[in-house]
Design a protein around this nucleic acid. Structure first.
Lengths: 197, 197
DNA sequence: CCACGGTGAGACATTCATGTCTCACATGGG
DNA sequence: CCCATGTGAGACATGAATGTCTCACCGTGG
């Protein structure tokens, strides 16, 4: 490990492969190992040298996703300032990883019987703690449990990531759409709605 | 077609098979045709007699899901009364089909290249029209587009359905958690939050 | 210059879900 | 009673994705 530079025939960058695979599997969750290798610009043999199999690749993606979530959690400084602002920062920091999170959130249904990566428990706990803090400070309503708000955050991130890829939401609106719906909901709060019908 | 009654060895009820398959695939989206047949109490041969293949089964489930959505849309009477109340009725009517919707919402990623069942366009339009009506009446905020609110509804239904199956949300709270988050968001509106930190 | 490590390409066997077929059997109607 | 229909069980072939292996090649470092 002296130069860190690499031509197209040098040692494969594990991180580059993982991020390429994440980008591909985000769009097509059933992509073949061959397609993943092609997307990363390497051969299937080399891909298999770095990740023993598809399971290992998905597990590595899971670890990457957890790491990115924790990095976003760190960068958002959830303990500082109003909980609502902390949540806004969290969503903003999470946006680059939203596609990967969407893939893992829907793929996790496959790991039902197996042992669950306990990294998710750590991430879930930190997010739930933010919602709990907001409830205790009086900023968040208490009839929605922190566990549900955490799941709702995952769900909205996933929905908005897909909506962006399908062109239903503009990429620049990702953070606004996600965080505003999660925080304020669809109802207007400022004005009294005029009755209809 | 005289009696419509059937013993356990008589003609298989297509609707029963579909609903059993929906319930199974909701929990395990990768279930094999053999597992689907076992769950429905029939043999794989019989299952294949009714649905030419897995694709045909998923398509039939898609049609069932669209039909249930349209039935819920009809029952919710979206044109009557305040839009917020109409949305509450819609979520309540949709709850029984939430698992199936969750399966289709995540499985639809697989039908990217193929032709899309235009039934979803009808459902999407009716839901988006509800949100638009709410915006025009002044009840819903206008910075969240109807298309995004529609996607968010799907996403929250899916997230809440999964949260219920995983025990993170009580089944009886399904409608409340979903509709209250979608309408009101996480923030308290009545009281001014006391500042923290 | 040469040996070594990492890679690409391809062949090959394996596994698994699927699609298809046959046969035996139970039920219900004529 | 006997036949038609629909079913269950199982065998079989197919296709796709995967896992494993070999071989040739290239660049690096000695």
């Amino acid at each position: 490990m002296s130069h860190m530079g690499y031509s197209r025939l040098m040692a494969v960058d594990r991180d580059h492969v993982l991020r390429t695979a994440a980008a591909l599997l985000t769009r097509k969750s059933t992509a073949t190992m061959d397609e993943v290798a092609k997307a990363a610009g390497i051969s299937r043999a080399t891909l298999h040298r770095h990740f023993a199999g598809r399971d290992a690749l998905v597990r590595a993606l899971e670890s990457l996703g957890i790491a990115e979530c924790e990095a976003a959690l760190d960068a958002a400084r959830l303990d500082e300032g109003p909980a609502a602002d902390a949540l806004r920062r969290l969503v903003r920091e999470t946006e680059p990883a939203a596609g990967l999170i969407a893939f893992l959130y829907t793929e996790n249904q496959l790991f039902e019987g197996d042992e669950r990566n306990d990294g998710w428990a750590r991430v879930d706990d930190r997010i739930a703690a933010l919602f709990r803090r907001g409830q205790e400070s009086g900023a968040f309503r208490i009839d929605l449990t922190p566990a549900w708000l955490t799941e709702a955050l995952y769900g909205l991130l996933t929905a908005c990531a897909w909506a962006v890829t399908e062109g239903r939401v503009a990429p620049k609106d990702f953070t606004h759409m996600t965080v505003e719906l999660l925080l304020g909901g669809a109802l207007r709060q400022d004005a009294s709605p005029r009755e209809e019908s």
